[in-house]
Design a protein around this nucleic acid. Structure first.
Lengths: 245, 245
DNA sequence: CAAGTGAATTTGTATGATAAATGGGAGGCC
DNA sequence: GGCCTCCCATTTATCATACAAATTCACTTG
C-alpha cells in the first residue's frame, strides 16, 4: 500500500523551464483568483496538495510560502492555510496580476486597468517632467524612435511599453515602480484588442510625442494634460473595439 | 568533526511568535533594501545562509522563496540568488515597504510617500464619490466619527487609517487595494512626526469631513479637490515638523 | 458545570540524499 | 592558434523521513 516510487520527473504537466513549486503556486493562485477558494476559506492541507500534484511536501510548502508572500494566504499550525481578504492581495504583483487577468472577464479587466492608469499616469508624467535626468530623456526619446520605426506587432507593443516605463523611471520615485507590471499587462492586452488600429496609430504616435516634448521641456502641467489626452484616446479605442465585438 | 546536534530551538534571536523562515527573510530583505546587497550582485548560497543563522537549509529556502515572490531576488541553479533590479521590487508589499522604511532616511521616506499619496488619493476620492455603496458610506461615516471621538494617540491614528481605507474600499477597484499598506505606513509615521498637532487637528477633521461630504453627495470633482486640500495641508504639517527638528 | 488537561492534527524545522541546470574549463579537431 | 564539444564542479531543485511546535477540541476531573 506504500506507494514508494523512485522520483518521477515532471509530474505536473507542461514541459520544462518552469520550476515545480512555481507550477503549484500558479495552479493554486489561479484557483484563488478565480474564486474557487474564497477569502476566509480553508485550503486543503499540504499533504493533500502533494497528493493532488504528485509532488513532495517540500515543493508544496515552497509554493505556499510564495503565495503567502504575495498576500494571498496565511498559514497557521493545526489550522491550515486560509485565503486572506482581497484587500491584502498584492494585485500589482506580476504573477497575481496575471492570474487575475486569466480569471477576469477581458473587458472588465481592461476597464479597471485603464481606470487605474487614468489615475496614476498623469501624475507620473507630471513628476517625470519635474525630475527627469538627461539619461532618462535619452531613454524616452529612444523608446519614441522605436515606436516610429516599429513594423511588427511585437515591436509596436514593446516600444510602447518601453516608452511608458521610461516615463515611470523618469518620475524617480521608487514607490511608483510597481506600476510597471500593470502597464505591461495592459498594453499587451490592449494591442491584442485592436489589431487593425492603423488609423489610430498615427494619432497615438502624436500623443506620445506630445508627452515626450512636455517632459523634455520640463513642463509638468503640459505633461499631465498630454498624458490625459493619450489615456482618453486609449479609452476610445477600447470602446470601439468592444462595440465591434 | 561532524556537528550533529539535535535540533536547537530559536537559533536566530528575538523571542517567539515569528517563524524562523520569516526572520531569515526579514534579515536578508532588510540588508537588500539597506543596500548591503545591490541589484545584480550575488547572494551567499543557501548553505552559507544556513550557517550564518544556524538554521536548516529548509528554512533558508523558504525565506528565499518568499523574497523571490516579492520580486527582490531571482535564483538559478549553479549560479545562485541574484538581487533583482529595483524596478522589479514590490515596494508596495507590506514587508518590503517596512524594510524600506527602516533603511531609508525618515524625511526622505515621508516625502516620497506623500508624493505618492498626492498622485493617487485624489483619484481614489473621485472614484469613491462615483461608486460608493451605502454600506461603504456607513463605514466612511463611522471612521469619521471615530476621528472625532479619538482621545489617545493610537485611536487617532487608527481612525484616520480607517477613514482612508474606507475611501479606498469605496473606490471599488481591486487594483488600488495595495495602496492600503502605504497609507498605513505613512499615517503611522506622520502622526509620530507631529505629536503636538492639536491646533492642526481641528483643521484636519474639517478637511476629512469635506471629503466625506463630497463622496456621500456623489460629487467626484469636489471629492478630488477636498482630498487635494487635505494632502496639501499634510505637506505643510510635515514641513513644519521637519523645520522644527 | 467549569476549568484544565491531554490527544490529534497541521504546519514548522531539520537532515540527508539525489536530480537537474548551467557555467567554465579541459581537451580534441580543424 | 582558434573554435567547438564534452565533461565536471557547483548550486539550486526536489524528494523522503522524522520530529518539534502550535493550536484546536474533546474529555476528564474537581
Amino acid at each position: 500500500m506504500n506507494g514508494r516510487k523512485v522520483q518521477k520527473r515532471r509530474p505536473i504537466g507542461k514541459s520544462s523551464g518552469v520550476k515545480l513549486h512555481a507550477e503549484v503556486a500558479r495552479n493554486i493562485g489561479e484557483r484563488i483568483l478565480g474564486g474557487e477558494f474564497k477569502p476566509g476559506s480553508l485550503l486543503p492541507n499540504e499533504a493533500e496538495w502533494g497528493a493532488t500534484f504528485a509532488v513532495s511536501r517540500t515543493a508544496v510548502r515552497e509554493a505556499i510560502k510564495a503565495l503567502s508572500a504575495k498576500g494571498l494566504i496565511a498559514s497557521r499550525p493545526k489550522v491550515g492555510s486560509r485565503v486572506e481578504p482581497r484587500s491584502r492581495w498584492n494585485l500589482l504583483d506580476r504573477d497575481v496580476l496575471s492570474w487575475h487577468r486569466s480569471a477576469t472577464d477581458r473587458k472588465a479587466f481592461l476597464a479597471s486597468t485603464q481606470e487605474f492608469r487614468r489615475i496614476v499616469e498623469p501624475g507620473i508624467a507630471e513628476l517625470a517632467a519635474r525630475r527627469r535626468t538627461t539619461a532618462q530623456i535619452d531613454q524616452l526619446v529612444a523608446a519614441l524612435e522605436g515606436m516610429k520605426r516599429a513594423k511588427t506587432h511585437e515591436e509596436t507593443v514593446s516600444s510602447d511599453v518601453a516608452f511608458h516605463e521610461a516615463l515611470l523611471a523618469a518620475s524617480n520615485n521608487d514607490l511608483l515602480m510597481p506600476f510597471g507590471v500593470l502597464i505591461e499587462e495592459t498594453l499587451g492586452n490592449l494591442f491584442d484588442f485592436t489589431t487593425q488600429r492603423n488609423k489610430h496609430y498615427k494619432l497615438a504616435l502624436k500623443l506620445h510625442e506630445n508627452i515626450a516634448k512636455a517632459v523634455i521641456a520640463g513642463d509638468p502641467e503640459g505633461a499631465r494634460k498630454a498624458m490625459l489626452a493619450l489615456i482618453g484616446d486609449t479609452d476610445m479605442v477600447i470602446a470601439v473595439a468592444s462595440k465591434g465585438k
